[in-house]
């Protein structure tokens, strides 16, 4: 059985979204539990990818391909895991809505963070770039997300992060969400000044922050 899990892990590391689906199906047919496939096949693969990216051995395409492989595998596992999660609340992974705020069309930083969060096992809903503030909040409401993650590279787009937090207040929703902010010019002091719940210097710190905000670390 370990052989299945090793192959699944390796397929994630190689960003092979075709093989990973094949191996997951084979493992399920052989009687492997969906939870074990997730925790001992997919997640270790995601961890290896994250570490290699952090160490400079892997680059952005490797991260994106691994994210793609994870997504493909999760399409198969999700319904099976949902049944298990219904019985055990601790199995549910938090939803994170992520977007580059309106007027900012830079996506690389946001993509890296989204891929790393997905690799960490979160259910990431990526709304893309230049996203209107109300659309971000509406999607968070619709998907029952726990975290809203905002990205802005441009200094003159950063005020929109504050506007979103103000909008959450105005709509009476601020207490429902943890708001993470990030981008080249975002500092911890600035994040605090706009009432955000935190920021990270890079994607690795973003994952740590998400874990902390969700009480997982």
């Amino acid at each position: 059985m370990a052989n299945f899990l090793e192959r699944i892990c390796q397929a994630v590391v190689e960003g092979d979204d075709v093989s990973v689906v094949e191996y997951v199906q084979e493992a399920l047919q052989a009687g492997e539990s969906p939870l074990r496939i997730l925790n001992e096949g997919l997640m270790p693969g995601a961890d290896i990818v994250g570490k290699r990216f952090e160490e400079g051995e892997y680059f952005l395409p490797d991260l994106m391909l691994a994210g793609r492989a994870l997504k493909a595998a999760m399409e198969i596992l999700k319904p099976l895991l949902a049944a298990a999660a219904a019985a055990d609340a601790t199995l549910k992974k938090a939803k994170i809505v992520i977007a580059t705020v309106q007027t900012d069309i830079h996506d690389i930083g946001k993509n890296i963070v989204a891929s790393m969060l997905a690799a960490a096992g979160y259910d990431v809903i990526d709304l893309g770039v230049d996203v209107p503030l109300n659309s971000i909040i509406d999607k968070a409401e619709e998907t029952k997300a726990e975290i809203i993650a905002l990205s802005a590279l441009l200094t003159t787009s950063m005020p929109y992060m504050k506007d979103l937090i103000d909008l959450l207040q105005a709509r009476g929703l601020r207490q429902k969400y943890r708001v993470m902010v990030g981008g080249a010019s975002v500092t911890p002091e600035w994040a605090e000044s706009i009432g955000a719940d935190g920021t990270g210097r890079d994607a690795v710190e973003a994952v740590r922050l998400a874990r902390r905000l969700l009480g997982e670390a």
Partner: peptide
Amino acid sequence: GTLTEIGGRAVRTGQPLEIVA
């Protein structure tokens, strides 16, 4: 560099103040 505030007001991308800035 970039002017990110005009008269103490934050300049937001794509908003009228960007023209002023």
